[in-house]
Amino acid sequence: MTRVDFFFNVSDKVFHVADLSSRAVQRGRRLMILTSTQQSAEQLGDFLWSNPPTGFLPHCHATHPRAAETPVIIDWRHDQLPHDDILINLDNQHPPFFSRFRRLIEVVGLEEADRAAARERYRFYRDRGYEIKTFDANGAAL
């Protein structure tokens, strides 16, 4: 069953995703980062070109010819998923395909609209029997 983790009270979602991605790639994991739009996927991709400042996170879109061997996939589309290791959801809806992944990470910012959408996703996963772990942005489990 998919492991579901919620990271709440995140002041900078893009930076937090970059940090989570860097740590996962260092451990040999592969990530699919789902955004809500092409523009947000491209903005995140631009950020990852220079962050972390002392490293590089190889990434591309799901339709790129090297997607199968690239550790970080950033995309807004649901139709081509090159792996099923870790999914980071930055969309306001639950991904319909999340259960094929080993781990789902939800990143929740400080804005009330983001928090309200996250509460809906939390209920969706909980009502389907998924065990959910929650973490404060400071690293303390809630």
Rank of each mutant, 00 (worst) to 15 (best):
H64M: 03
P65Q: 13
A118P: 01
R123M: 08
L110M: 08
P71S: 06
T70I: 08
A118V: 08
G28H: 11
P58G: 11
K13I: 15
L20D: 02
L87I: 04
W76K: 12
C60L: 10
R123F: 14
H78K: 05
R3P: 04
D91P: 00
Y125N: 09
Q26Y: 05
P82E: 08
L81Q: 06
F7W: 14
N138Q: 12
N92V: 10
L142M: 11
V10T: 15
Q43W: 00
R102H: 14
H64F: 03
L110A: 00
D12W: 07
A113R: 08
E111Y: 00
D114T: 06
K133L: 13
N89R: 03
V14Y: 14
I33S: 02
A113S: 13
L31G: 01
V25T: 08
E106D: 02
I33M: 02
L110S: 00
D85Y: 01
T134S: 13
R121I: 05
A141S: 08
F47L: 08
S36I: 01
Y122C: 00
L90E: 03
A116E: 15
L34W: 09
Q93C: 09
V14C: 00
A140D: 00
F8L: 15
P71I: 10
F135H: 13
G55H: 05
D19P: 00
D79T: 13
F8E: 08
F98A: 14
Q80D: 11
G139Y: 11
A62M: 03
P96M: 05
E111K: 11
L48R: 01
L87A: 10
L44E: 01
K13V: 14
S40P: 01
Q39S: 15
L110D: 12
S36N: 09
V10Y: 07
A41G: 01
